[in-house]
């Protein structure tokens, strides 16, 4: 099978063509960097995404602090992950890089703060 993808690894947005059967990738063309090839392979086998959201803070400057996944998680788990994030409240002070939820949903990926509050 042949599938055309638009790479989301960086803002360049390369148009990539992948030839594959099931989860076996035969060829990746059209990418202009290694990240593109990696993206295309993952997209066929097990698509993943980074997500960014906010978590409630008690006693901070702002009522919420931004967070992100420390690594991409499977696309199918995005909304489950959002439920976990929305269930959490942290106390100020929060430091940039602080782990807010370790190993979210058993993925090995942490939810980390991306700003101080």
């Amino acid at each position: 099978m042949k599938r055309d993808l638009i790479c989301v690894a960086c803002p360049r947005g390369c148009m990539i063509t992948v030839e594959y059967e099931g989860t076996e990738v035969y060829s990746v063309t059209g990418n202009t960097c290694k990240r593109g090839e990696e993206y295309a392979r993952t997209e066929i086998v097990n698509p993943t995404r980074n997500i960014a959201s906010t978590v409630k803070v008690n006693g901070g400057v702002h009522p919420v602090v931004p967070v992100k996944t420390s690594a991409p998680i499977p696309k199918t788990m995005i909304f489950d992950c959002m439920r976990e994030i929305n269930a959490v409240t942290v106390d100020a002070p929060v430091k940039l890089g602080q782990v807010i939820i370790p190993d979210v949903l058993g993925t090995g990926v942490n939810i980390v703060a991306t700003n101080n509050d």
Binding site: I6, P11, R12, R49
Partner: peptide, 12 residues
Amino acid sequence: GLTRNIVQCLND
């Protein structure tokens, strides 16, 4: 907008 944003924000 950037093409990547159409893919990852709308199409997804």
